[in-house]
Simulated assay, not measured.
Amino acid sequence: MMGKILAQLLICFWITLPFCVTEKAKERSARQRDAEFTDKYQTCMQGVPGVQGRDGNPGINGIPGTPGIPGRDGLKGEKGECVTERFEDPWKPNFKQCAWNSLNYGIDLGKIAECTFTKLRPDSALRVMFSGSLRLKCKTACCQRWYFTFNGAECTGPLPIESIIYLDQGSPELNSTINIHRTSTVEGLCEGIQAGLVDIEIWVGTCADYPRGDASTGWNSVSRVIIEELPK
């Protein structure tokens, strides 16, 4: 009896086993299709974003790169202009005038007048001018010379500054009556004078190889000496 029951159970097991296996296979296939559908057509809403993370620690320096290829020389530029800059103090005018009313100097030899000037630069030149009435008279040929001195000496840079009046012998009767006074000038530039106080004087003297006559300076009129310092 027991063997018969066991045989029936085995028969039933063998009959139902294929159906059970088939159902499990179908179940696995359905779950796989559902998963593929969910991955492909995801319709779920996204959640709230999380808190932003902190910055990481700075990284270390990388390995230095290799040197680049040297560049080529550029085109040659145009030749520039040569400019020399000079940084000097601006030139300021420096001049002086000394004037006299009616000197009426009748001397034939000696100093007539003087004017002291302050020279500011050692490399400048002095322009001097005397303007006044001059006269010379004599019965025989004579000559007088009016000239400048600088600190007691005539100019040597380059030559003396002078003017002369010469009167020919002519007729003794005629020359004895000539007495003409004319406004004349003695003017020139003198270089090589040091800076500082300079005593500038106007003198009258004789000409070389000629006798002196009767000279007169500054008769009945204004005489003046003008001094100006000029850049070289």
Rank of each mutant, 00 (worst) to 15 (best):
I11P: 10
W14D: 15
W14P: 03
L17A: 15
P18Y: 03
T22H: 01
E23V: 08
K24F: 10
E27R: 06
S29Y: 02
A30S: 05
A30W: 04
A30I: 05
R33M: 08
R33L: 08
D34C: 06
E36R: 11
T38Y: 14
D39H: 10
T43K: 09
C44E: 15
M45R: 15
M45D: 15
Q46L: 09
Q46R: 09
P49S: 07
R54C: 04
G56Q: 04
N57E: 14
N57I: 13
N57S: 13
N57M: 14
G65E: 02
T66G: 01
G68D: 02
G71W: 04
L75W: 03
G77N: 02
E78P: 05
E78S: 11
T84R: 13
E85D: 07
E88I: 07
P90V: 08
P90I: 07
P90H: 09
P93F: 05
F95M: 11
F95D: 15
Q97A: 09
C98M: 04
A99N: 08
W100L: 00
W100A: 00
N101A: 10
Y105A: 09
D108A: 10
D108P: 00
L109M: 13
G110M: 04
K111T: 12
C115N: 03
T116R: 09
K119Q: 00
L120K: 06
S124Y: 10
L126H: 04
V128Q: 07
M129H: 06
F130Y: 15
G132F: 08
R135T: 01
L136F: 01
C138N: 15
K139L: 06
T140P: 04
W146Y: 15
W146I: 01
W146F: 15
Y147D: 00
T149Q: 08
F150H: 05
N151A: 06
G152I: 01
G157K: 05
P158H: 03
I161E: 02
E162D: 12
S163A: 13
L167K: 10
Q169P: 02
Q169S: 13
L174P: 03
L174F: 11
N175K: 14
S176E: 11
S176M: 11
I178V: 13
I180K: 03
R182M: 08
S184Q: 15
V186E: 09
L189M: 12
C190A: 00
I193R: 05
Q194V: 09
Q194F: 00
A195T: 01
A195R: 04
G196Y: 01
G196S: 00
L197S: 13
D199Q: 14
D199F: 10
D199T: 12
G205W: 06
C207D: 05
A208W: 06
D209F: 11
D209R: 10
Y210P: 00
P211T: 09
R212C: 07
A215W: 09
S216E: 08
T217L: 12
G218S: 03
S221K: 10
R224W: 12
R224I: 07
E229P: 02
L230F: 07
